Amino acid sequence: MVAVLAVTTACTPAPGETDAGAPTPDGHREVVLDLGAADVVDLRPVTVQAAPGDVVVLRSGNPGRGPDDESPVHHLFTSAPEGTPPPLFIPAGGGLAPNPGVWGVCRGGEAANATSGCPVPPIEGPRHYDGRSYFSLGALLPGEQRELPLSEDLEPGTYRFTCAVHPHLHVDVEVVEDPAPASPRPPLEAAEAKGQARGLAAAHAEHRAVDETVVLLAPQPENPPAEVLQAVPAEVHVAVGGTVVWRNPSRAPHTVELGINEAPHLTHTAPADTVPIVPADGRWDGEGRVQSGILSTGVGRTELRLTFTRPGLYVAYDRFAPSVTTQVRVG
């Protein structure tokens, strides 16, 4: 995971910038997405108009946590139809590794063939988007931008680029002869998103079993569309013999890891770090390490259930988002 998840310096958009700006003299047309915050990812769809031959520039307006953030990857835009993105991870070294066909830049071939890498070697793929070939723009970090060059003969119409991490987020490129700039929109209401996230966590908690506490990892409310990068609740208190259930009912990857002294670094992750390490009976006495492996609907594992048998204060970390941390007090 080291190469594709390397961190770059984030930058913050200037005040007053729009989510789809007017064309620059060289035919570039910018669309700013994700007007969220460091702990709230904005998943509102955006639209940009462009003419054939233009270059659409996708830029993340999320400020992130600055250059010291080890894991700020938010989006991976591909031309796969909504709901059918290629796999985020593929088997490697006994665990999982990012699929280069999604996390890297790919041009050409079919989306259905991007299951373990680019369908077409980059040197052989088309340099411009023709509306038919698979395009992946690679990992988009907070403040970064990616360019999508449009073919000169691209037919008028709407072309959708869907985020492989957040399939409900998409950028619609409307190809027209006379593009118009879009109106600016306000930043995401982060407080409203966090309130909705608490509501989602409460709904999951209603269906818990006796002596179970449910923690929702990075909830994704629909109104407003967002991913709240927090564990909800972030602090729980259970009796000895009580069970905590961590759930991630979304495609965005997260982990739960205990028995370590500090948060794990995503950029130093090896496939072995994605292999689940959980006591066979699900009961943990605080000794040794526990790791859930990647939790995501995209890998078919979405839950970690752990029963605590010794009093103490334990911290559960998330490899993909340092802010998604749970403190568990037992006893």
Rank of each mutant, 00 (worst) to 15 (best):
S79A: 12
P81F: 13
P81W: 13
T84N: 09
P85Q: 07
P86A: 04
F89D: 01
G93C: 07
G94Q: 07
A97T: 07
P98I: 03
V102H: 04
W103E: 00
G104M: 02
V105C: 00
E110A: 14
N113S: 14
N113Y: 05
A114G: 04
T115G: 11
G117D: 03
P119T: 05
V120A: 08
V120E: 00
P122C: 03
P122M: 07
I123G: 05
I123M: 12
G125E: 00
P126D: 01
P126A: 05
R127L: 09
H128F: 14
H128L: 12
Y129T: 01
G131W: 05
R132P: 00
S133T: 10
S136F: 06
L137G: 04
L140W: 08
P142A: 10
G143C: 08
E144G: 12
Q145A: 14
R146C: 07
E147D: 14
L150G: 02
E152F: 11
D153F: 06
T162L: 09
C163Y: 04
A164D: 01
V165M: 14
P167G: 13
P167N: 14
P167T: 11
D172C: 08
V173Y: 06
D178L: 14
P181C: 10
A182N: 07
P186G: 08
P186S: 14
E189Y: 08
A190G: 04
A191C: 06
E192F: 06
E192M: 15
E192I: 12
G195P: 03
Q196G: 08
A197P: 06
R198F: 15
G199F: 13
L200M: 15
A202N: 11
H204W: 15
H207N: 12
H207I: 06
R208M: 04
A209G: 12
D211P: 06
